[in-house]
């Protein structure tokens, strides 16, 4: 039997994140079409994002936004009732960076295609040894 203690939202997401990263890496290493390689990077990115958020997630705590759902009392540290905000900040950055990198890769893909009329990665090996 699976230990139910680990059978939580956070752990499942964590697992999902890892699987997506691995699938993404697998795609990066096996696919020959450059666009598909870039897609695989996107999958891995999504996996990492899920990973980061799930690591910061604690059951029963709300989003790190100070609004009505967080009971505000003077002198009480609100950090007890919200999830860790830092990972979420990281994810935000990571998403933006991931998008930028993906865009750059796609720009490259376009240039590569214009140069050789193909997207097969094996064809772009004029620099070697």
């Amino acid at each position: 039997m699976i230990n139910t203690e680990y059978f939580t939202l956070g752990h499942i997401s964590l697992l999902l994140g890892f699987i997506l990263i691995i699938v993404g890496f697998w795609g990066i290493l096996t696919q020959k079409n450059i666009v598909k390689i870039i897609l695989a990077f996107s999958i891995a990115d999504a996996g990492i994002n899920i990973l980061i958020v799930s690591l910061g997630y604690v059951i029963g705590k709300t989003a790190p936004i100070i609004d009505g759902s967080v009971v505000q009392k003077a002198g009480i540290d609100v950090s007890d009732s919200i999830v860790d905000p830092v990972p979420q900040a990281l994810v935000l950055t990571s998403i933006v960076i991931g998008f930028g990198v993906t865009a750059l890769m796609l720009a490259y893909a376009m240039k590569l295609f214009t140069a050789k009329k193909t997207l097969h990665i094996n064809k772009f090996n004029d620099l070697k040894w």
Partner: peptide, 16 residues
């Protein structure tokens, strides 16, 4: 072309 393919290799490698 050479610089394009080199740049692409560079960006995917650094992404990994």
């Amino acid at each position: 072309t050479r610089s394009i393919s080199a740049g692409f290799k560079y960006i995917i490698a650094t992404s990994v």
